[in-house]
Amino acid sequence: MAKLRGTGIAAVNYPTGMNLGGDPSQALIHATTSGSFVVTLSATDLGQGLRTVIAQIAAETLGVGVDDVFIDTADTDTGPHDMGTFASRATHRVGNAVIAAAKEAREALLEVAAEELEASRDDLETDGLGNIRVRGAPGRSVKVTDIASLAQFTYGRTISGRGAWMKPRSAVDPETGAMDPDSTEAHACTVAEVEVDTETGVVTVISIKSAYEVGRQVNPALVHGQIVGGAWMGMSHALYETTTPYYPDPGHRPKDFSEYLMPGAHETPEIDCVVLEYPSSNGPYGVKGIGEMTANSPIPAIVNAIYHATGVRIDELPVTPELVLRGLEAKERHASGGVTPSTAGD
């Protein structure tokens, strides 16, 4: 009996967005008289940080500070239509809609500023710090907050913008499967190291190290969080989780967290990553999206690492200790002239 170590790799792509039914999102932006901007949506934040990254995208396009942007979501009476948060689509679609809305609002802002500064609209620029200035004329500047107030009380104007983004619906050719079901491709390559206890069949994941390529990172800390949390979930899928432990037999279904197995704080391996940026052509500032894909490559990387450690090729998820032990037994039988060790027909 021994503890055997092995490493495995997996390389994946992930198609983000889903437009087989059309995939639109809308956004509205307006300035309050105190100079903050409110982005109104009906998109949902599942914990990935949508409100934060959308505020960043809006601030970037408006040319104001991120603290001056508030995200009002989600209410179908105030927020314009959005398909929903799924398919790694939200940052990509909503981000694109917000850029369009922010451009329109920025134009309105600069038009009022041009009147106030008695300058040409085309000579104005924002500094990202809350000021609008005349290019090449230091001293000729005005605060965004002042313009927001003047727009209402002096000029009787709104500073607002509308934005929509949609990838048109793509039909599938039922004979060939020709289709255009997504917007862009993100990528990952994961190297997992495991230790397999040949006496108990327990697999311990030592580390999950990955390279990701996700287009532009709007917020690297949030991207990192997705990668770390997703690696944990991938490990959990690989080794622990199922609602139907004896599938297809429907019995013995867990009903709570004490019966539905997931790795806890103690089982978390070393998780680390590097992130490459190859901006996409169609995402906001080159975003591709990273919401879903982070649980994917760790699964086969772990399963391949188990093979590297033990010589047992496993073709089932989750890889329970029982499966490992049966695989080891079969391998021994095979070595002494018995049946093939694989659970599938090689």
């Binding site: 990955s210 390279a211 990701y212 390529e213 590097v274 190859y278 052509s281």
Partner: peptide, 25 residues
């Protein structure tokens, strides 16, 4: 690609190169 969409955002190779460098392969 098999579903007749031409790849335009592929970086699998670069991603694998980065992973190899990251783990010292």
């Amino acid at each position: 690609k098999p579903h007749r969409k031409r790849a335009e955002d592929a970086t699998l190779i670069e991603t694998m190169q980065a992973a190899a460098a990251f783990v010292g392969h």
